[in-house]
């Protein structure tokens, strides 16, 4: 299966990646190629096979409800692009 540019543009937006026209064309080509590879999967009938989400057949371990973390805001925000009054700053969010 090959992808068209519109689809690639949509995917890029879902993934929040800005592409210029040249990139859009290049990705449309290479993603189509990769999809060709992926679709080789169809050679195998997987009817009735249980999907495998984890490599180990294990169950979730549950942690006791205890507070073990301390305030590290200063350390974490020293590496932030923009902060003020302890908040991370981003361009205005409109609801």
């Amino acid at each position: 299966m090959s992808l068209d540019k519109d689809t690639v543009e949509k995917i890029a937006h879902l993934a929040r990646l800005q592409l210029n026209e040249q990139e859009l064309q290049a990705y449309t080509d290479s993603l189509s190629q990769i999809l060709g590879l992926i679709e080789q999967m169809n050679a195998v009938d997987t009817t009735g096979v249980a999907p495998m989400a984890h490599p180990q057949d294990t169950v979730l371990r549950l942690r006791e409800d205890r507070i073990e973390e301390t305030d590290q805001r200063e350390k974490f925000q020293r590496i932030s692009p923009a902060t003020e009054a302890g908040l991370y700053l981003v361009p205005k969010v409109i609801e």
Binding site: R66, E69, R73, F76, G86
Partner: peptide, 22 residues
């Protein structure tokens, strides 16, 4: 007392980002 996926406190009203762990 602590969060669902981390051991930080869930207490309401703390100073911003002081209860946000790694």
């Amino acid at each position: 007392k602590s969060k669902i996926f981390s051991a930080a406190s869930t207490r309401y009203g703390a100073a911003p980002n002081t209860q946000a762990c790694a």
